[in-house]
Simulated assay, not measured.
Amino acid sequence: MLIYLAKNIILLHPWCAVVFNLISRAIFSLFTSFFICLWIAPSVISCLQKISCDQVIRSNGPQAHFQKRGTPTMGGIIILIAILASVLLWVKICNAYVYCVLFALVSYGAIGFIDDYRKIVHKNTIGLPPFWKYTFQSVIAIAMSTIMYIIGKDTFSTALVIPFVKHVIPQMGILYILLTYIVIVGTSNAANITDGLDGLAIMLIVLITSGLALVALATGNIRYATYLHIPYLSCASELFVVGTSICGAGLGFLWFNTYPAQIFMGDVGSLALGAALGVIAILLCQELLLMLMGGVFVIETISVILQVGSFKLRGRRLFRMAPLHHHYELQGFPEPRIVVRLWIISLMLVLFGLTSLQVR
């Protein structure tokens, strides 16, 4: 929005063009979303406490979590407001990629809001029935996948970049729809599963998003894209600004979500941010890179699948509790130690993922 308002100013004062270039807008976007979070979070926390929007604690969860009773949830609303405001201020609104990410963010945020609301009203951890939850997620993901496939068919937009492999960028064909569906729904639910310790999921999202934002910067620049042997997508550069906005909002929320948390993100935040992360990776043709950078999400999700599968088939559990971070809690590891170590692992994976582009 500010880009269009600034056009006349730039004509009168050419030095102002520096302020509105891509890098500057990305930095301003980060600070904007960060300070919006700091500004509105105290009021939102107070409001949620007054209307008793408290996190429902699992009765069979770690005993230490019962100390968190009374902590408000649905804090993802703060993140979404900050991201939407920052993005609408600093990106070029005519960019289709931006609309794709915002649509995923809002639509999955709505699903998460309904889920959180039902948990609070019914005072249990069930929320939205799994059948309807996955149905709504699937309908949105399939609709987005189909539209993106029709628009980008047989172009770089529907290709797949393979980390560490040069000059091989296969076209996915109709399989693009299936891959896109799995990435959007899978990443959304993986973020939701991982959101079980104070500050864990939000910082992982910040780290992965920052890595993908750098990839977006390279993908939207023909020189960088050619050098790295990745598809050049002219619209991708605006995803750099979207990415920094998500990072800023995430860091702003972490200010209140770090241990001991003053507010929880809830499904409204985790489902929305996970879906947005998946869509960004898809638009950049970096679905496999997302799996590499988001290795902690992958491991946490696999731990749940293995736990459920083992119990149903063998009647035995592989872990003391799933997802994996609860297993370590029950082994006696302090929550902050688990969180920080998973942050470190995620940072290493993000850096390793960026390196994979360089050595292709």
Rank of each mutant, 00 (worst) to 15 (best):
Y181P: 13
I182C: 11
I184N: 01
I184C: 04
I184E: 01
G186N: 09
S188V: 05
N189R: 10
N189H: 08
A190V: 06
A191W: 15
A191G: 03
A191S: 05
N192E: 01
I193H: 06
T194A: 14
T194K: 04
T194W: 04
D195G: 04
D195S: 05
D195M: 06
D195Y: 02
D195V: 04
G196C: 02
L197T: 01
D198N: 10
D198S: 02
D198M: 04
D198P: 01
D198C: 03
G199Q: 11
G199T: 13
G199K: 10
G199N: 03
L200M: 03
A201F: 01
A201Y: 01
I202R: 08
I202Q: 09
I202H: 03
L204F: 14
V206K: 07
V206E: 04
V206N: 14
V206F: 09
V206W: 08
I208G: 02
T209I: 15
T209Q: 13
S210E: 12
S210D: 06
S210K: 08
G211N: 00
G211D: 01
L212M: 12
A213E: 08
A213H: 14
A213M: 07
L214E: 09
L214D: 11
L214C: 12
V215N: 07
V215G: 04
A216H: 09
L217Q: 11
G220E: 08
I222H: 15
I222Y: 13
Y224G: 06
A225W: 01
A225R: 00
T226H: 14
T226E: 13
